[in-house]
Structure formats: C-alpha cells, structure tokens
Amino acid sequence: MDQVIIRKEKAEDVESNAKVSKWKINIKKRKLLVYTLIYAFLGLLLLLSVIPFWIVLINSTRDGFAISTQGLTIRPGRSLAENYRILTTNANIIPAFFNSLKISTLVTILSGYFSALTAYGFHVYKFKGKNFLFGVILLFMMVPSQMAFLGYVQWMTRLGLMDTHTALIIPSVAAIGTVFFLRAYISSSLSRDLIESARIDGAGELHIFHRIALPLMGPGVATMSIFAFIGSWNNYLSARIILSSKSQETLPMVIASLRAMRIWHQNQGAIYLGFAISIVPIVVVFIFASKYLIENISAGAIKG
C-alpha cells in the first residue's frame, strides 16, 4: 500500500518536473527573442553613431578626386601624408590645436574646481540670502549666454583682454549648470555627519573640502568635466568674437575657415583630416572619463 502511494507521488513529481522544465524552456525562448531584438536595436544605434566617424577617418586618408568621384567606401586611401602636408601648409591647424587644448584644459579644471567649491558652499553652509542667490543662479541658467555677448565684449575690452585666451577662460569658470548639477549631486553623496565628523577631527573648512568633499564629488565633477571640455573644445562663437590675430586662433575657427579656402574642392581629404584631428581629444577625454560617467548614471541605484 505504502509503495503504491510512493510510486504515485513519484509519478506526480515527474509530471511536475516536466512542467517546470517546459516552463523553463519557454522562458529561455522568450529571453532569446527579447535579447535578439535588444541587441539588433543597439547594433543599429552603434552603426548610426560609428558611420560618420568612419567616413571622416577614411576620407582623411583619400585624395579629393577619389572622394568626389568614388563616393563612400570602407577602404582607406593612401593620401594621408599628402593630406597632412596640404592641411598644414594652407592652415594653422597645429598651433590652433594646442591653443584649443590649452584653453579647454584650463576651463575644464578651473570650472570643475570652482563649481564644486560653490556647490559645496551652497550645500553645507547656512547664510542669509542663500535661497535668493540660488534663485539668481537658476535665473541666469535660463538666459542664453549669447544675450550677454555685448556686455561681455565691452567688459573684456575695458579689461584689455581682447584677443587673449584669458578672456575665453575666465568667464567659463563660472559654470552655472555645473554648480546646479553638483549641488544636487553633493546632497546625495555627502552626508552632513561626515563634514561634522571631520570638523571634530580638527580639519579646517578648506581641508574638509579638499580631502573629504572633493574626492566624494569626484564622479560628479568628472561627468561635468566631460561636458565642460567638449563645450569649450567646440566653442566657436565667443572665440570668433574675442580673438582676432592668427596666432591666437582656436581649432574650431581654423576648421571653419577651411571651408572658405580655395583648396576645398580639390582637397576634401585634407579637410576631413582636419576634422579627424579635432575629434581626437574628445575621444581621449571620453575614454578616460566614461568610467565615471557610467558610475554616475548608475549612482544611487544601490544604496551603499
């Protein structure tokens, strides 16, 4: 009798096992389908974002004739050296590259540091008019910077800073958007107890900022630095307005002037090379900072 029951139970077990494995297979099938679709979509996006870069890179190795007659190709040409020669003899591209690099690096470092300092001040200290001041910051954020160009130029002329890189660097230090972002970031990444603990440990206010707050704000600052760098690297308008002498020119100015040159039609390859050169630092910055960028996007997902 007992054995019969056991056998019956076993039979039921087998049946339910079969159900479970069928169900598992179904789940697997569904997963496969979903993932295939997701990867197909991501692949498409990847293609869309890579193709323009590819065109620029390939075309910078081909001569103008090939580009205008043969259209798009995936094979690199052999005219890289020739293109480089044409580019450097006709345009000031290398000095402009270093001008841009200098300005962008300084803007990134200074705006990152001072924005963090400002955001920290807003977060940690209580002072009269704090909310009003932050309101003003928000207000300025909504006004396009181009609106202030007239005053900007006038002021820079008075200070005698026209046609200098300083005139491009100093105003960029006050990065309103960065302050706004970092203030939100700091409130989630830095607890007040930590600051108070450091105070009791005997640390001065600047010491606390440098040793405790700044490292903890690191990912946020890095994220904003990417944007600051790209923004400054691509900054054409204010550079065009402030700078006038050839030796001071930045990369976007030179790239823009390439189009006006007579070499344009015969030597498209050289122009593509110019574009390629202008992309390099951004790619480098992205490679180094993308870790922080991803960390930052996923920050807050898991409470530490």
């Binding site: 607890s191 107890d193 930590l194 108070e196 603990s197 450091a198 105070r199 009791i200 440990d201 005997g202 640390a203 040793r211 405790i212 490292p215 903890l216 530490g304």
Partner: peptide, 30 residues
C-alpha cells in the same frame, strides 16, 4: 570654542566614516 578645540570625539549614528579612505586612514585623519 570651535569643535576641534574642545578636546572631544564624537561617534555618529551612521558612523560617518570617510568612504574613500581605508580604515587606517580614517583613524589617522585627525
């Protein structure tokens, strides 16, 4: 008198350890 000059130490409810430093550096900070 500033907290740092009061000859006190404080333990917080949520510990308030400096997350980017090792335990050794946390202890050595002050």
């Amino acid at each position: 008198v500033e907290p740092k000059n009061r000859n006190i130490a404080m333990v917080f409810q949520n510990y308030a350890l400096y997350p980017h430093m090792t335990v050794y550096d946390n202890l050595a900070f002050g």
